[in-house]
Write a protein that binds this DNA or RNA. Structure first.
Lengths: 186, 186
DNA sequence: TGCCGGTGTTAGCGGTCGCTAACACGGCAG
DNA sequence: CTGCCGTGTTAGCGACCGCTAACACCGGCA
């Protein structure tokens, strides 16, 4: 049953986001889905493998979704708006995954970390190329730094619970595009 | 000797930033400063106390520094630029502390966490009031959301190692102020 | 000189953690 | 009906971790 796996992954993401990978025990994860401790090993080969699957799957989703949205746009400016909208929507929909994604990357096994890093790099590359296409004359390094800064801005969502979802979506959208516009001018 | 304490705090910050609080052992921290394991207890009463001191001290530094810089400015717009510059400089100077600050807050003892949260709230309040003074008509909730988003933008520094320090400082400055300007217009 | 406080060492305790072993039980196929 | 596979249980092992105990060394001071 794949539903159980997904349920476990979701529960584990919440716990990892709150206490960190090493701060959560096998028994905690089991209890969160109503089973107890070692039953998890019927679905995942190890705790490390669970984290690995969580992070590779979210990295794939980001890369695929971002690539698709950017490719479907008709102008570079529109592509950039689409990327911002996509990242914002993703961060608002999966705040726990976003948190774990940037926090516990260092706790992955070497093979998993390498794969996640590669996927991340490719996702950033989509942003870099879109930024350079939208704003002529921006160096690759600058575009990359801008991309990381905008990720930070949008991924602040988990700490941002003062506005409701549509308002926050709109606000992050405006902030992100405003930041990028300001740099293009300079 | 207080120099040893500071040395330990700095080494522990680097380790916590890389592996998370629970991913670092007492022996690891000791080894990083050339002593071994339990000698730490000559300087700190517990591992929890070490983290507590680390996070309360950084929270105090942020609050005091930010308040001073904002108060010394002559106009709200200048105060906001000062806050952005201060946060940028802090994040670039102490990337490990920034990382631990937002990642391991949940691993503090209740009393420490309460104190850190209070200091953080007051620091955010400085930003909120400055934003509202600089841009008339922005609601408190919106200003707070903007502040958190700008923190995320600036604190992306640890993932941002493609530009040298002065360039990155300038870039983050422009991005942050551009983001805020865009929201004021809307 | 002799003591003493500050700082370091190693040995080891109690608890926790990831994981395995051994077993139980229900649903479905032959 | 029987046997098996998927999924759950509890008991417990071995390793690790935070921390304490007991002891050692050194520098300054009566």
């Amino acid at each position: 049953m794949t539903a159980r796996r997904d349920e476990i992954l979701a529960a584990a993401a919440e716990l990892f986001a709150r206490h960190g990978f090493h701060g959560v025990g096998i028994d905690d994860i089991g209890a969160a889905v109503g089973i107890s401790g070692p039953a998890l090993y019927r679905h995942f080969s190890s705790k490390d493998a669970l984290l690995g699957e969580m992070l590779t799957s979210i990295s794939k989703d980001l890369l695929e979704g971002g690539s698709a949205r950017a490719a479907a746009a008709e102008t570079p400016a529109e592509a950039l708006r689409e990327l911002v909208a996509f990242q914002t929507d993703f961060a608002l929909t999966h705040p726990a995954l976003i948190t774990v994604h940037e926090r516990d990357l260092g706790n992955l096994r070497d093979a998993d970390r390498h794969e996640v890093r590669t996927l991340q790099r490719r996702y950033v590359e989509v942003w870099v190329q879109t930024i350079q296409a939208a704003y002529a004359g921006v160096s690759e390094e600058r575009a990359r730094a801008c991309a990381h800064a905008v990720f930070g801005l949008i991924n602040s969502t988990p700490h941002n619970r003062y506005l409701d979802k549509p308002e926050l979506t709109r606000l992050l959208h405006d902030l992100a595009l405003g930041a990028l516009d300001a740099v293009a001018v300079a």
